[in-house]
Design a protein around this nucleic acid. Sequence first.
RNA 1: UGGGGAGUCGUCCAAUGGCAGGACGGCAGACUCUGGAUCUGCUUAUAGGGGUUCGAAUCCUCUCUCCCCAGCCA
Length: 563
Amino acid sequence: MAEVPEKPSDFIREIIARDNETGKFGQRVHTRFPPEPNGYLHIGHAKSICLNFGIARDSGGLCNLRFDDTNPTKEEVEYVDSIKEDVRWLGFDWEDRLFYASDYFGKLYEYAVQLIKAGKAYVCDLTADEIREYRGTLTEPGKESPYRDRSVEESLDLFRRMREGEFPDGSRTLRAKIDMASGNINMRDPVMYRILHAEHHRTGSKWCIYPMYDYAHCVSDSLEGITHSICTLEFEDHRPLYDWFLDELKAYHPQQIEFARLNLSNTVLSKRKLIRLVREGHVKGWDDPRMPTISGFRRRGYTPEAIRNFCDRIGVAKRDSTVEAALLEHCIREDLNKRVPRAMAVLRPLRVVITNCPEGREEELEAVNNPEDPSMGVRKVSFSKVLYIERDDFREDPPKDFFRLAPGREVRLRYAYFITCTGFVKDPATGEIVELQCVYDPATRGGDSPDGRKVKATLHWVSASRALPAEVRLYDYLFLTAEPSGPAEGDFASSLNLNSLETLTSCYVEPGLRDAAPGSRWQFERQGYFCVDPDSGDERLVFNRTVTLKDTWAKIEKKQKKH
RNA sequence: UGGGGAGUCGUCCAAUGGCAGGACGGCAGACUCUGGAUCUGCUUAUAGGGGUUCGAAUCCUCUCUCCCCAGCCA
């Protein structure tokens, strides 16, 4: 019985509990998940989604879904659609609270005018390069823009004309008037608005000036009545600016709280790098089962429950960290083990002839669907003279501790009979073993020996006459190193795992899988969890390996090879 | 060298002045018609130096290391 760990708690929930005690927000809790629709969601976003929606759920509060769509040159509807689908699939519901920062463009403009009038913002004519020069460096203060002290009237007029479309892209900006000497570079008169004559996926060509993140985000939070604005660590030194805008605007003021983003071993989680994997063809798309995207995990066979459980178990803190992929794998195995039916599938077939079995005989044997859950019932599997077993399950010269089939050895065929290997056929040219000859013991029908005889291994198998051909795709880590983006690594391409996908095209699965629905999940006994890929059709069965079963023998063998 | 953060088992997270604990991994064993699952045991950590205190991961202090910031990206 896997029990729920202790109730998940973290420093953010502690802050919220304290705020509820002091009545800072009048016992109200309202969070938001604010993705930019410029890419697909990944497991790092899942952490944020589980945090924000989870906090709302646990505290009787609300969580909004808000698209941070302030940069029309990077954002697309394809991404907003995928993001909505992924959040829903993860099991969260924003009800009627679907918002877009672009909903607030009008309000944002009015607030900007208010800041200009208060002498807290000005239109600047410096070019992008000049702004950079004037900004100073990490250790030297910046210089004030020559336009900084232009009159309120002139800035007002220019800002209006920026909006009217009188000026070309990049020719002017609206800047907050803060402090060019601040140690915090974000406070050195940050740009609030830039001119972008670009079509926006929602507002079309209505606007040609677009607000910057720092300005749009805090105002959006404020307008939505967010209480706790949870974001990642890199925004920590943006918080003074978040606070500055809202204070100067005398607007409702949420609390920004930062936590450490998720890093997962053997993969990358930055949008820039994920988009490279897609564009450079290292994977087949955003939903390639090797991708750490929500859509990739979905196609790979992961469940929302397993992902949510993972997000609960990794915790929330402020320290940079990289979670081992083994924990995610543990979560998905734990979930699938309880709920998924078993089946037998032979991935790398080796032909076995049962020499004492009559030609043409077909026999139905009973197999358990899930030993973890008797309520899932039983099914029939057919046994006949010619079978397939896994090539790995036979060794001509078995090494130490190899329990499986070898010349003269007896093993059990799962739910069927004990068989003993009496001979084998080798291809004289290649030395490859092409067929095994075995005899079965009719007294062991069902897999039990009446004389109490023990056998050290149980093999999965399929009947050659009834098995269905299938394609099986085996996935491995995308990267060979635990931290492909870590300080010690160069370009991530150098640590790419060139063997992250292995496609097996001559597999056989038991006949009951004929109508397995796309997306349906199975455990192939002794091998792992698999799901039906959408590439499957009437003519073709395609399975993705979600995760292997733990494999003690593989571990022993690996150790033996080392010595 | 400016500003902002962070240092606890291999990894992730707890312990908020009172026995450093859990999970994953690893190792060993039990059980098993999946070398699966399950169960049991073991292993290993407070970055370093000073100080306060009966008592410090926790408070003070100095040092070291790591991460983020110089987009008209978010």
